[in-house]
Simulated assay, not measured.
Amino acid sequence: MVQAVLVLIVLVNGLFAWRFFQDFRAHRQEALAEPGSGAFLGAWGAVVFFLSTFGISDFALSTVFYRMRKLVEDAKLPGTLNTQCAIPVAVMALAYISAIQVEPVTLVSCIAAQMAGAYLGPRFVVKLPVRTLRVCMGVGLILAAFFVVAGKFGWVPSGGEATGLSGGKLVLALGLLFAYGALNNVGIGSYAPTMATIYALGMSPAVAFPIMMGACTFSVPLGAMEFVRLGAYGRKITFFVGLFGIVGVLAAVFVVKSLNLAMLQWVVAAVVLYSALTLLHSAFAERA
């Protein structure tokens, strides 16, 4: 089952890569004339996808950075954010699913639940106030970060080392991951809540990584291919950031694999708390 997932990742993202390089070759001179040097964009790609591998949003960081440096027009920004991350996220998924043991049924069902949420969710989440969703998620993640830290100090029972779920826990996880997939459509990232959920259900925090990346690596390239077809993206950014983003991903994967469980719990707490504060800041800034 896991081998089938890996093959599908290669096929889906290989199709995106082929279509992108065909488009890049056809518009090579136009692409190289776009703003930004290749070396500069490559360095940015390595940094931003190193951080993204730990759950820090490359969408948020790149949006601020590209607008500040005037590297791509706003109309092409959504397409650029999607196309630049397709290949690095595929590498993340392949590396984590291969390197970190997850019970196959848990892995595949969690990936499927989050993808279903991303596909079916918009018809529900668009009816809800985005600000209210962000406040609720932000408060929930702060509580989750507190329980991770409390577990470290022995105040409450801490997460376990399980690599799979069954029964009621699996059903709960699938329901929550479906919701996280839906919330992606209103700009609320799924990485941090997935981390918190996996930890709270008694699984090893490392298991969150293959589940998070596995869900994203199927949904991202499908949308990215549409942006390529329309030419509504920054070709130069996608080429250099996507290519050198692979370097950042591999460096981060090595760090995660070399960390012991105790250190990884602190990483989970930091990422969850960072995401919570980002959501609350967005909510109150929107109100202001």
Score class of each variant (00 low, 15 high):
E286P: 01
P129I: 04
N260P: 00
A60Q: 13
V47E: 03
G248L: 06
F147C: 08
L81I: 07
V89S: 00
S204W: 01
A270L: 10
V47Y: 01
F59S: 05
F153N: 06
F21R: 02
V139G: 14
S282M: 11
G42L: 15
M212P: 02
I246N: 03
A270E: 10
A251H: 01
F178I: 01
S52R: 13
L277K: 08
V135W: 03
V48I: 14
V255C: 06
K127E: 06
R28D: 00
S62W: 03
A208F: 05
R134K: 15
Q101A: 13
G151W: 11
L120D: 05
F218A: 09
M1D: 09
V272K: 11
L201G: 11
V148D: 08
A113D: 13
E286I: 00
A4L: 08
A145M: 10
I87R: 03
A93G: 08
V186R: 05
K169H: 04
V102E: 06
Y119W: 15
A192M: 08
V267P: 13
A33N: 14
G234V: 05
L11D: 00
H281F: 11
L107T: 00
P193T: 10
F254Y: 04
L81C: 09
G223H: 01
A145H: 10
T63F: 08
R134C: 12
W44P: 06
A39T: 12
A26R: 01
N184Y: 00
A145I: 14
G214V: 06
E286F: 13
A95Q: 03
L277F: 14
V64Y: 12
L177M: 13
A46N: 05
D58G: 05
G121E: 10
V148C: 14
I211P: 06
P157V: 02
A283N: 12
R67A: 10
T163G: 12
P129H: 05
G138K: 03
H281Y: 15
D74V: 10
A182T: 08
G36C: 13
G242D: 01
K152E: 12
W266P: 00
V247C: 11
G154H: 14
S37I: 07
G214F: 07
S109E: 09
F124Y: 14
L259N: 11
A31G: 04
G159L: 11
V10A: 14
S109F: 05
V12F: 10
L94H: 04
M212D: 14
Y233D: 13
V72C: 05
G38P: 02
I188M: 05
L243F: 01
R235A: 03
L71R: 10
E34G: 06
T83N: 03
I56D: 05
G138C: 06
R229Y: 00
G168E: 08
S52I: 07
I237L: 15
P78F: 09
V102A: 11
S275L: 09
Y274V: 14
V102G: 04
L41T: 02
A179N: 00
Y274H: 12
L280N: 12
I246Q: 02
V220D: 00
L201P: 02
A192L: 06
A288T: 14
V2E: 14
V135Q: 13
I142M: 15
Y233E: 08
F65N: 02
R28H: 04
K236T: 01
